[in-house]
Design a protein around this nucleic acid. Structure first.
Length: 909
RNA sequence: GGGCGAUUAGCUCAGCUGGGAGAGCAUCUGCCUUACAAGCAGGAGGUCGUAGGUUCAAACCCUACAUCGCCUACCA
């Protein structure tokens, strides 16, 4: 047993403790017939990632649950890993290369991928070591990466199976294209932001039928936010019911700048009431126009290159970047007299979620997953409660998305990622979809070219819960640990990841991937703003760990975790947890110092004589364990934390330790020169036995408390636990305390109520003392007129504690013969007389009493109003009425007594 | 445009199936009492967003409105 250092300094021991756990292999879990499985898969952080507060929160929560399950006797396994994060990682490495003037194109595909692997081996474990610093008890022997060889096999199997089942198809469609990343992205990778812009009116002249030339007087005016796309217009559309344009139907429209003749079409999509009711149609650059183009068989003229520069179809605008082209187009239209009015307009602009570049809708050949058939069973699984969201409100969001799900574009024009397992024969172009390189084509050729594209990262991560267990291999782990127990993640990836895992798991495993999904709060700064580097409000969890220790960070995050809320994180919240850790440290020091020489381990509890204070703290502890378990069950993490701190600080430290001092400090027993209490006043005449009971219970409760706190604050609890008497080699594998009926582990409401009255009495006396500014060092005399014999006995038995905790010289049962010099107060119907003649400040006291009277009169009025209401008496339940009656009578008593007090004081004055 | 959520003490938030408004922080007062000043003891502070309604009884249920936030969408 190490002695606890004087100061709590987590930096001194956290990493050593972590390493010792690692060495002992406590985090590793095996398939075990004797135990029930409890498993969690980590939401794999990007290899490029560093630990941000969101990770810290998420992983703290997972660790709490895993540690709890482990102590409860489950085979608890936390599967860790990282995500290759295609586009994100590619961007990071490219940026790095760009610094040296290298682009991925100068390197070439193969070399570039080598570079990325290099990068990963150098920096990819950064986040892992940060998770370790946080204390995460992941089973590191099972560490996986979504780009491991095995994992590639899983993904290929996924693709090929879905393809063979007709759920994957390839085609030319309009997709969201990022002109900076040079790849297609899926709908949910586009972030829409409201942007101020303009709405321009452009006049398209009608062709005069006789001359075949554009009219100088007849125009159709269209409105657009993107004038540059007019270069690709192939029609003007109006609503079929719009009478204004009926007369022009059948005539051609002259498209300025490109001098093309385009038709007028009728389509229901067009809103008569918006703008002029006429819309320019650019099927190659707008999703709606694309649809209209399909319906009306229009040409789709692509006027841009893949990096959003105008191409040869844009005529003289070729080579201009899209926004330069816009400017030029507007100038030219203006000078030709085709430009109408310009209005301010707010429209939502799609941005690439990875690089913030404005998305360019573009037609291209891509791979898609058809989602409807996959979504249906996944919707059902949640409806039937096979997957539960906590908090439940996220289910709505899930349904909403799933019910309106659209096909998923999974091909990416990137280099870093799972290459699409599709090959084309170099001779006959036959397409072969297969899990590995085909040997020979049916044309006899053996030359193949693999599809250039890679798969969306989420297409691989949606296998995570079973691919980490090496699916499609049939492994023992898969059999045992799957489906996992719970998934903990943020709401921002419900669509990206959670929904798709459910779909794929149901498809491939015929089971849900997890039984519950706990959606952790979004962490914001103290003003509720999202943390971002540009705002400079990012809190770096590692710096908190360095400064305050991982336990403090974990506990802070956990105590702010109430379901469905954002989490506002600021300095003062961290301080609160730090103070708590410090309190725990100091209280433990007190305990270790005061149980020296007592062999608590060998003590037979049956030989102890427990007094009410012992029974009280044991009962409180038992209740704390019960609440804690209840809260953990419901993922009410903040409540769990609150019941842990409340118990320790308010019950154990403020009452139990404080009272135990009277029993433990040697001199209290010998004499009481300073007005303290002799042993006989503590309800136990055998001094030695009483001291022993106190010492034992101090230790017993602390030792067990450390265990229940351990999942939340693993390091400090281990450190202290190792410094006090204990059995077993580490707290991490200790058994979670159980509440039974034996005296040490049961709840006891009778004792609790008994002591509560004593506490009230002590508090009342303290209050009077404090309000009258009686120096805490001064011991005062108190008379107590008890409401009943029970309380009288209670007070007599606890007189020593009352005297020590309220700093009394003496407590006398009964009323003082002469009220003079006494302050009278009533608590729980007991009359309390505090002798304050030496200390009194009459004005202060008059004020106090007047205030008190004012408050109580208000309450009395409320009660009597209710009781005078016949409808209340008629309709309210009996117990409510009785409660109200007793409230009233008590209030009356107190008022009477206070008024008596008042007149007494006034007479002195 | 649609949807969801929020509105309670100076701040951040609890408040269960309607029945005496709570915590932490901040603030104020008094204390270096031999585990802890990162502490101890005590106090003050609220028309529960607004307006209606249901009920004997509303922070809680219903309706409308206001303000803020988030998600979602193809109005050029």
């Amino acid at each position: 047993m190490d002695k606890l250092p004087d100061k709590y300094n987590p930096a001194d021991f956290e990493s050593d403790i972590y390493n010792s756990w690692l060495e002992k292999g406590y985090f590793h879990s095996e398939v075990s017939a004797k135990k029930k499985p409890y498993s969690i898969v980590i939401p794999p952080p990007n290899v490029t990632g560093y630990l941000h507060v969101g990770h810290a929160l998420n992983n703290s929560l997972q660790d709490i649950l895993i540690r709890y399950a482990r102590m409860k006797g489950f085979a608890a396994c936390w599967f860790p890993g990282t995500d290759h994060a295609g586009i994100a990682t590619q961007n990071v490495v490219e940026k790095e290369l760009n610094k040296n003037g290298i682009t991925r194109f100068t390197l070439g595909r193969e070399k570039f991928i080598e570079k990325v692997w290099e990068w990963r081996s150098r920096y990819g474990s950064g986040i892992i070591s940060q998770l370790k610093a946080l204390g995460c008890s992941c089973d590191w022997e099972r560490l996986r990466f979504t780009f491991d060889d095995d994992y590639v096999k899983s993904v290929n199997h996924e693709f090929v199976t879905l393809y063979n089942d007709g759920l994957i198809y390839r085609g030319n469609y309009m997709v969201n294209w990022c002109p900076r990343c040079l790849t297609a992205v899926s709908d949910i990778e586009v972030e829409h932001k409201e942007k101020k812009g303009n709405l321009w009116d452009i006049k398209y002249p009608l062709i005069v039928e006789e001359t075949g030339l554009p009219s100088k007087t007849e125009f159709i005016t269209v409105s657009t936010t993107r004038p540059e796309t007019m270069l690709g217009d192939t029609a003007v559309a109006v609503n079929p019911s719009d009478k204004r344009y009926k007369k022009y139907l059948g005539r051609k429209v002259f498209l300025p700048l490109v001098d093309r003749l385009i038709p007028i079409i009728e389509d229901d999509y067009v809103d008569k009431d918006f703008g002029t009711g006429a819309v320019k149609v650019t099927p190659a650059h707008d999703p709606n126009d694309f649809e209209m183009g399909q319906r009306h068989n229009l040409n789709k003229i692509n006027v841009m290159t893949d990096d959003a520069v105008m191409n040869e179809n844009a005529g003289r605008y070729k080579g201009l970047e899209r926004y330069e082209a816009r400017k030029k187009v507007l100038e030219d239209l203006e000078s030709l007299g085709y430009l109408g009015s310009k209005k301010d307009h707010i429209s939502s602009v799609g941005m690439c979620s990875r690089c913030d570049t404005v998305i360019e809708p573009r037609i291209s050949l891509q791979w898609f997953v058809s989602m409807k058939a996959l979504a249906e069973p996944a919707i059902k699984a949640v409806q039937e409660g096979r997957v539960k969201f906590v908090p439940k409100k996220w289910e709505k969001l899930y349904y909403n998305w799933m019910e309106n799900i659209r096909d998923w574009c999974i091909s990416r024009q990137l280099w870093w990622g799972h290459r699409i397992p599709v090959w084309y024969c170099t001779k006959c172009s036959e397409m072969i979809v297969t899990e590995s390189l085909p040997k020979v084509c049916k044309c006899g050729s053996t030359g193949f070219r693999q599809d250039e594209d890679v798969l969306d990262t989420w297409f691989s991560s949606n296998l995570w819960p079973f691919a980490v267990m090496r699916w499609p291999q049939k492994t023992a782990e898969l059999d045992y640990f799957f489906p996992t127990s719970v998934l903990i993640t943020g709401h921002d990836i419900i669509f990206f990841w959670v929904a798709r895992m459910i779909m794929m798991s149901l498809y491939f495993m015929k089971e849900v991937p997890f039984k519950e999904v706990f959606i952790s709060p979004l962490v914001t700064d103290i003003h509720g703003r999202k943390m971002s580097k540009s705002k400079g409000n990012v809190i770096d969890p590692m710096s908190i760990i360095d400064k305050n220790g991982a336990d403090v960070l974990r506990f802070t995050l956990a105590s702010l975790t109430s379901p469905g809320k954002n989490m506002l994180l600021g300095e003062d919240k961290i301080e609160g947890s730090r103070n708590f850790a410090n309190k725990l440290w100091n209280a433990s020091k007190f305990v270790t110092a005061n149980i020296q020489g007592v062999n608590v381990i060998e003590t037979d509890p049956k030989t102890l004589t427990l007094n009410p204070w012992d029974k009280w703290i044991l009962s409180k502890f038992a209740k704390t364990v019960k609440s804690l378990e209840k809260y953990l069950e419901k993922y009410s993490i903040s409540f769990a934390c609150k019941c842990l701190t409340d118990f320790f600080w308010n019950d154990y430290c403020d009452w139990y330790i404080e009272s135990a001092k009277s029993r433990i400090y040697e001199k209290k027993y010998n004499d009481d020169k300073d007005g303290g209490s002799a042993a006989t006043e503590f309800g136990n005449t055998d001094k030695a036995k009483d001291r022993q009971a106190a010492q034992f219970v101090l230790w017993y409760v602390l030792e067990r408390y450390l265990k229940i706190l351990h999942p939340f604050m693993p390091f400090i609890t281990e450190k202290i636990w190792q410094s006090i008497p204990h059995e077993g080699e580490s707290i991490i594998i200790a058994k979670f305390p159980e509440i039974k009926s034996r005296i040490l582990d049961k709840t006891d409401n009778v004792v609790e109520n008994e002591l509560l009255k004593i506490f009230n009495l002590i508090s009342e006396i303290r209050k009077i003392r404090s309000e009258l500014k009686i120096n805490p060092a001064v011991r005062v005399k108190v008379y107590l007129n008890p409401a009943d014999i029970l309380f009288e006995k209670n007070v007599k038995d606890n007189a020593g504690y009352i005297k020590d905790l309220a700093k009394l010289q003496e407590i006398v049962i009964g009323r003082p013969a002469d009220n003079k010099g006494f302050i009278k107060s009533i608590k729980d119907e007991n009359e309390i007389f505090v002798y304050i003649l030496d200390a009194i400040d009459i004005e202060l006291e008059l004020n106090r009493i007047n205030n008190e009277i004012r408050k109580i009169i208000q309450e009395k009025d409320k009660s009597s109003a209710k009781l005078e209401n016949p409808q209340f008496l008629d309709k309210a339940p009996k117990d409510i009425i009785n409660k109200e009656k007793s409230k009233l009578s008590q209030a009356l008593k107190i008022i009477e007594s206070l008024q008596e007090q008042l007149s007494l004081l006034q007479s002195i004055k």
